[in-house]
Design a protein around this nucleic acid. Structure first.
Lengths: 135, 135
DNA sequence: TCCACGTCTGATTAATTGTTCAGACGTACC
DNA sequence: GGTACGTCTGAACAATTAATCAGACGTGGA
């Protein structure tokens, strides 16, 4: 194997299989896209936010105080978490009076949650794929 | 160590819709399961690990140095990341000689990655379930 | 045997992150 | 108007975390 046939990047390290490295590297998404995707996963990587999102997945539309009661978090924490989620368009708000009602607003995240629940062996009941959420 | 069975809310906050709160709360997985799931998502929440896993998704089976070259990470970082992934059974190793070949070892994570890729708009090809990796 | 190589590891450092506290904002009701 | 309420916010703190460095380990070849 020629180890210096293709100089792809600034710092090319020693490789065992340069062809595969080149091929795989080309198949990877842009750096920005990877970071963005990691960001989404990271959003789901916190137990508090995960409980929040699963609550919304089940409850459909809930206000901050109910979310706090459901997830056993402080209302401040919930608000902070919700703001983050909102910034990433994962949830959306409808304000009525002084209440703020949140709901899941991302189909992909919904599927990610669903798949994740399956991963843990916790079989989720049925949940409408659309933005229903009546219970 | 907590012996609470029914009295979950030590501090029951104000709620708007106690019925829904109770119902949704009952539908949530156990705390441990949520943490475990968040752990998995968290694993995918780092750009470096994500590149690593996407490389394995595409490349099938790769050694540490090729992984480092592909993801533009230091071999030490790769090794650290791989150890974490290994500890969570996300990847597995086969050692041949002084080389260590890693591969994806979790179907759910594979689906999560696939779904995530779709989320970013980057459509992946098909992924070989086992030992494939040539493209 | 010795040396080169690929990989792994522990410790340190730096950065990021979640939580809490205290208070601000806007709305509803008196 | 004033007050109570639900929500939001910024700052400070604590905890977690990833990157780096230096070196160890085991393997293979001379």
């Amino acid at each position: 194997m020629d180890t210096e046939a293709t100089v792809i990047d600034a710092c090319d390290l020693k490789m065992v299989d340069p062809d595969k490295v080149a091929a795989v590297r080309l198949s990877l998404p842009e750096a920005d896209d990877v970071v963005e995707l990691a960001d989404v996963f990271s959003l789901l990587g916190d137990p508090g936010r995960l409980r929040l999102l699963m609550s919304l997945l089940e409850g459909g539309e809930m206000c901050v105080c109910d979310l706090a009661a459901t997830t056993a978090m402080s209302e401040s924490s919930v608000s902070h978490a919700l703001r983050l989620l909102r910034a990433h368009r994962v949830v959306s708000v409808s304000r009525r009076g002084r209440m703020a009602y949140y709901r899941l607003d991302d189909g992909h995240v919904r599927m990610l949650l669903d798949l994740g629940l399956t991963h843990t062996g916790h079989t989720v009941a049925i949940h409408p794929e659309v933005t229903g959420g009546d219970l």
